[in-house]
Design a protein around this nucleic acid. Structure first.
Lengths: 338, 338
DNA sequence: GCCTCTTGTGGAAACGATTGCACGGCCCTT
DNA sequence: AAGGGCCGTGCAATCGTTTCCACAAGAGGC
C-alpha cells in the first residue's frame, strides 16, 4: 500500500541498504547518490514505517505521559507544555490518565513498555517504582514529576510546596493576621503534607502554635471546599485569613464565601494555591501561590531529553529538583480589621 | 532483554507459531497446550512487542487525537473522555496539538500515519481532507469532530452551534429583551458563523432586524472580550442582555463587566457559551449554552470504534451528526428593567 | 480396511526497516 | 609498480510477530 524503502531504492537504482543510509544515515554516502535517493523518496512520497524502524533499532520516538486527569489546571498545563516541547523534538506523546489508581497506573506503565516508548514522564502514585526502575534499567528515559518516589532511580521534578505555603503564610502573618484558616489535601498526598508543613513552619517562625480547629484537610473535590468554609466560618474562633491549598476544593471555597456574603479582603484575606484564569478574573482578583506548572513541565522535558540524548547510562542524573513557587500578589489580602 | 515469544515457546516445549496461536489466537489449539503456553508466558513475564505485531499485522492499537490546544475547556474535556474510553478498549492515545496551524496539522497527520495509527479523531482546520481521506482509504478509521470539512469522506460529529445560539437568544427575547449584544468568534470559524446565524434567526423569528452595532466578532482571546464589552457598553444603544458566544473572550467579558460595575442580572442579562466550572461559581451563577463536549466526545469515540470493528470498509458511515446544545438556566438572566 | 475429513502442530515466509561484514575500486605512499 | 587504507556500496542477517501452508494423527463413514 504505502511506498516502502525498497521501492525508493529501486527507483533510485541502488540497494536498500544504501537507500537507508542515504535517508537516515550518518555513514559515508557519496553526495550524488544521496541526492538521487532523496529525490526518489520525495517523488514517490516515501514515509518511514515507524513500527519497522522501532523493531529493528529500538527507537520508537514515542513518549508516555502518565497523570491523574486532565481537568486539574496544573495537569493540563503540563500536558500541553510537554506535548508541545516533545513534538518540536520529533517525539509523539502517548497520554495516559490513571485517576490516581495504582493498578491502572501499573497497567498503563506496562502497556507503554509494550509500545516500546523511548521515555516516560510520570505524575504518579510513587507506588510503582519497580516498574519505572525496570524501564530505566532497560534503557527507557524516566522522569518523575510532582510526585516523588523514594525508591525511584530516576530524576524527579517537584513543586516547592512547603516553601510556597510557608511564603504565603508568612505574607499573611506579616499583614498582621494571627488567626489563619488552612484548607488542604489529605495526608496521603505529598502536596497535602508539604503545604501543611509550610503553614506550620511559618506559624512557628512567629512563635505561634498551630490551632487544630483552623486546619481542615480532605479530598480533592469542590464539595470538601464548601464544607470546609462552612465549618471554618461557624467555628468558635473568627478567622481573618484563609489559605486554600487544595486546588479542587478551591472551586467550592470561592462560591461558599460568596454565598455567605463574606467580603474579601475586608472580612477575610484569601490566598489560593495554583494559579488559574478564574482566580485572575475573580472579584477581587485572588492572590495566589503559583506552583509553576509550566516551569516544572519545561524542566521535566529537559531532563527527559538529556537522558534520551545521553548514550552512556552510567552517568545518570538521579537528582531531585525543586521548582520554586511564586506568590502572585493581587487584591484579596489586607491587614485584619481590628 | 525483554522475554520474547520464542523463549515462551521453548519453555512450553512448542513451536513459536503454536505459542502465538495459544496467546492471541482464535485458531484451534488443544486446551492443554494453550494452558501450558499461558503459564509459561506468565512465568517468564512475557509481554508482546507491539512494534513487531504492528509491523506484521498492521494493527498498532494507537489512536491519534488532533486538536488545537488543551487550554480550552471543551478541548481538554474531549481529550479526557476520548483517552478514557479508548484506554478501556485497549487503545492508547497519541495526543497532538496544532495551534490551529494548517501546516502543523498536516505534518502531525502524516506523522500519525508513519506510526501506523489505527484511527484518528480530528478537531481540525478542514483544510487537510486529502490526507484524512487517504488515511481513510488505506484502512485507518477517521472521525471529524467539531469542525466539518466538506470534502471529507469520514463521519463528522458537530456541535449544534446554530441551534444553541438560537435557543439562548429566543430565551432572552421571551424574557422581553429587545436590545441584545452578541460577542462571537470570527467568520473563519464554523462556530463563529453558526452562532451568529442562530442569533440572527432568533431575532428574525420575532420580526426583529439585526443591529450591526450590537454584534462584535473577533479573535479567540480574553482581550477581545474585554474590548468588546467596553465598546458595547459605551455604544449609543443601551443593551439589556448579552450573549457571549466566544469561549476565550468570555474570560475577558466577565472581569470587564465587574470592573464596570455592571450588576447582573439587574443591569444586564448574561448568557455564555460552553459551560465550565467558573461559570457555575460566578456570582451570580451564569446561564450557559452547554455545547455538550462530553456527549460529542462519546459519540465520536463510538463512531471510531464502529469503524475499527467493521471489517468491511464498503458500508462506511459518512454521515454528519449534530449533538444538541442545552440551555442550562442559572441566575444571570431576568426580564429587562423598564 | 481404506479413504476422507478434521484437528493440532510445526516450518518458514513475510512485514519494512537497520546494520555488520565483505568487497571492489581508487588514491596515496614508498 | 606494488601494497595498504579508505570510501562507497551491496548482501544478508536480524528485530519479534503473525499467518499461510503442509503434514501427521486420529476419527468416522463406507
Amino acid at each position: 500500500m504505502a511506498v516502502t524503502m525498497r521501492e525508493v531504492a529501486e527507483h533510485a537504482g541502488v540497494s536498500v541498504s544504501t537507500a537507508s543510509r542515504a535517508l537516515g544515515g550518518s555513514t559515508s554516502i557519496s553526495e550524488e547518490t544521496r541526492t538521487r535517493v532523496m529525490s526518489a523518496a520525495s517523488d514517490l512520497g516515501y514515509r518511514v514505517n515507524r513500527a519497522a524502524r522501532s523493531l529493528r533499532s529500538r527507537e520508537s520516538r514515542l513518549i508516555g505521559l502518565v497523570l491523574n486527569n486532565l481537568l486539574n489546571a496544573s495537569f493540563h498545563t503540563i500536558a500541553q507544555v510537554v506535548q508541545r516541547r516533545l513534538a518540536a523534538e520529533g517525539y509523539q506523546l502517548i497520554l495516559c490518565t490513571t485517576d490516581a489508581d495504582v493498578t491502572t497506573e501499573r497497567n498503563l506503565l506496562e502497556t507503554l513498555a509494550d509500545h516500546g516508548v523511548d521515555g516516560v514522564l510520570v505524575i504518579g502514585s510513587g507506588q510503582n517504582a519497580e516498574i519505572t526502575n525496570a524501564l530505566q534499567a532497560s534503557g527507557t528515559a524516566v522522569v518523575n514529576v510532582i510526585r516523588s518516589s523514594r525508591r525511584s532511580t530516576s530524576p524527579t521534578v517537584l513543586a516547592a510546596d512547603r516553601d510556597g505555603s510557608y511564603e504565603a503564610t508568612r505574607f499573611l502573618l506579616e499583614l498582621g493576621h494571627r488567626s489563619i484558616g488552612f484548607i488542604g489535601g489529605p495526608d496521603t498526598a505529598d502536596s497535602g503534607r508539604e503545604r501543611l508543613r509550610g503553614y506550620r513552619d511559618a506559624l512557628e517562625s512567629e512563635g505561634l502554635e498551630l490551632d487544630e480547629s483552623l486546619v481542615l484537610r480532605g479530598t480533592f473535590t469542590p464539595e470538601f471546599g464548601t464544607a470546609a468554609v462552612d465549618q471554618l466560618l461557624s467555628g468558635p474562633h473568627r478567622i481573618t485569613a484563609l489559605l486554600s491549598a487544595n486546588h479542587e476544593a478551591t472551586f467550592g471555597v470561592l462560591p461558599a464565601l460568596v454565598a455567605r456574603g463574606v467580603h474579601i479582603p475586608d472580612d477575610l484575606s484569601l490566598v489560593c494555591y495554583e494559579d488559574m484564569p478564574v482566580l485572575q478574573m475573580w472579584q477581587p482578583p485572588v492572590t495566589v501561590v503559583d506552583n509553576g506548572a509550566q516551569a516544572i513541565a519545561d524542566l521535566a522535558v529537559n531532563l527527559l531529553l538529556d537522558q534520551l540524548r545521553r548514550r552512556d547510562p552510567a552517568q545518570r542524573d538521579t537528582r531531585t529538583y525543586r521548582v520554586g513557587a511564586e506568590l502572585l500578589l493581587r487584591s484579596s489580602c489586607a491587614p485584619p480589621r481590628p
